[in-house]
Design a protein around this nucleic acid. Structure first.
Length: 504
RNA sequence: GGUCGGGUGGCCGAGCGGCUAGGCAGUGGUCUGCAAAACCUCGUACGGCGGUUCGAAUCCGCUCCCGACCUCCA
């Protein structure tokens, strides 16, 4: 299984072979949320996507340092670098809370959602407010290098100078520098402190009523929005690292400005590979906090939202996301979720069947065996092609049919080598759980102790029903099946006996 | 207005020059006490119009829609 991993690099707009800076290690930075309100599902898609990327890199044997920040200061409302109110501050004012209470509340909420979605915590989760010193240092470096200027206590990044002296600005977002320089939007006219419309604040002097403020060489103020990512990625991953990720709505201006800040302060572009996830849509439109077209994870799980007919399990949501590529938009609809729920159940039950298959020890290298071997390899090939989870999943579904045929006797285990079966069992476990990060909710839930109890109880019930069936006592047999069905436990009669699964 | 990305069978969603994924729904079967599940079967889709090519959903041109970014959002 030695294929090369290829990833789509936003910087080159091409799929490139991934080569880490340090053999066997990967440094990855992903822009995390601004914690001023509940995460919505769109945010979750990005973090689930990078969770799978993180998991797969780890699966490949890389030692990954995954840094995902929490932005808790500096992110302004509105369309200007100054004049807009800090999002955290605004929320604090409206709810009469300390800014850090706001931050704490939504950070905890974010972590809870990440946990139910089974997203692994990052290696480091730095906060902007914990890195004010690093950010001030970076502003100073930018000033020292001549790429910034001070105006009335605020510091701005001089994009005009940066453009003249380097060829970086606009490269990532594919923007034409001339367009940026000749920006004439009405909104920008009143930003008199800036020398150019495309300049952006890296340090902002706090107005008297502004609650979050720190001492700096230029003013009592706070850092600009883009700065924290530059400062923290540099601190934890170095001046140049492997992968920088985020939602593609951050490409401009956030990421473009980040690149400028890094080069402006230390002369190096931050990341070799930029990965951008595409937007989650709802009703064909971008899911967005600001225009109200959004649904929270909570609402999706409970069904308490007009856009869904029922609640969906977090794992169904995760599976739904895996069925599309992270680089494509994904439209969230009720029927699509319904379909995902069935598909999720099918693959999980196939895995249960697979893990229960017992090999007698004698198996030939038949055509079937060869095909399974090929498909096992194919799963890896698909994932190595820019983390193509929908294609990898498609191969797993093909294998699910084979698994069910083996169980049903249409295919014979004697045509499968014991090692092949073992590999297949391993691949399903590895990919379903370790790489895709799914959990099997069709199986027994509620902790291991309860699982054992549940299994024991079900064995008894199935045994009793078997007795009823043998005496052709159909009313009793059906009563048991129907009552269990109402409780969310489905019985499946088969030639080998009766098995059961739980609804999700 | 500028820049970028899309339009794929009933729905979702891969593919991105020939081998025409996958899931869900639907069809007709097998199995079953009945059902469910499972298995088998059927279903040739790529917005429109031209062009390049032996061959195009895939490349090029035009055109019509849709979305994203350009201003806060993952």
């Amino acid at each position: 299984m030695q294929q090369e991993l290829k990833i789509q690099n936003s910087l080159s707009r091409q799929k490139e072979v991934f080569k880490p800076i340090h053999e066997g290690r990967v440094g990855m930075y992903v822009c995390g949320p601004t914690v001023y309100s509940d995460v919505h599902l769109g945010n979750c898609r990005t973090f689930v996507s990078f969770d799978v990327i993180y998991r797969y890199l780890t699966y490949l044997g890389y030692k990954v340092r995954y840094v995902r920040n929490i932005t808790d200061v500096g992110h302004l409302e509105g369309d200007t670098d100054i004049g807009g109110e800090d999002k955290i501050s605004k929320k604090a004012r409206l709810e009469q809370l300390e800014p850090m209470e706001v931050v704490q509340r939504y950070t905890v909420g974010f972590h809870d959602v990440m946990q139910v979605l089974n997203a692994l915590p990052p290696s480091i989760e730095p906060r902007a407010t914990q890195h004010i010193i690093e950010q001030i240092d970076m502003v100073q470096s930018i000033l020292d290098n001549g790429y910034g200027y001070v105006e009335n206590g605020s510091v701005y990044f001089d994009t005009n100078k940066f453009v003249k002296e380097t060829d970086y600005y606009g490269k990532l977002s594919g923007r034409k520098v001339e367009d940026l320089m000749t920006e004439t939007r009405d909104d920008l006219k009143n930003q008199s402190e800036k020398r150019h419309p495309s300049d952006f604040a890296i340090w902002i002097k706090a107005s008297p009523e502004h609650i979050m403020r720190w001492q700096s060489p230029w003013s009592v103020g706070f850092p600009g929005w883009h700065l924290e990512c530059s400062a923290m990625s540099t601190k934890y991953l170095g001046q140049t690292f492997d992968i920088h990720g985020g939602g593609n709505d951050l490409k401009f201006p956030h990421h473009e400005n980040e690149v400028a800040q890094n080069i402006g302060s230390c002369g190096h572009a931050p990341a070799n590979y930029w990965l951008h996830t595409n937007m989650l849509l709802m009703n064909g439109k971008k899911m967005s906090k600001s225009d109200g077209n959004s649904i929270t994870p909570e609402e999706l799980f409970t069904g308490n939202n007009p856009n869904v007919s029922k609640g969906y399990s977090p794992m169904v949501l995760r599976f739904f996301m895996l069925q599309s590529h992270y680089g494509s938009t994904l439209d969230l609809t009720d029927v699509a979720l319904l379909a995902a729920e069935k598909g999720y159940k099918r693959i999980m039950e196939a895995n249960q069947t697979l893990q229960g298959l017992q090999h007698s020890g004698n198996g030939s290298a038949s055509e079937l065996d060869q095909r399974i071997q090929g498909q096992i390899a194919q799963v890896h090939i698909e994932m190595n092609d820019d983390f193509n989870t929908p294609k990898a999943l498609a191969v797993l579904f093909d294998l699910a049919t084979t698994i069910n045929r083996l169980q049903g006797g249409q295919d014979k285990l004697s045509d499968v080598q014991p090692e092949t079966l073992a590999q297949l069992q391993q691949v399903f476990q590895d990919f379903l759980f370790d790489v895709f990060g799914l959990k099997d909710e069709t199986a027994t839930g509620g902790g291991q102790g309860n699982a054992d109890l549940m299994n024991g109880l079900m064995d008894i019930i199935i045994e009793v029903r078997k007795g009823a069936k043998e005496t052709k006592d159909w009313p009793t047999a059906d009563l048991i099946r129907n009552k269990l069905g109402e409780m969310g436990v489905q019985l499946k009669d088969g030639p080998e006996g009766t098995s059961w699964t739980r609804d999700i």
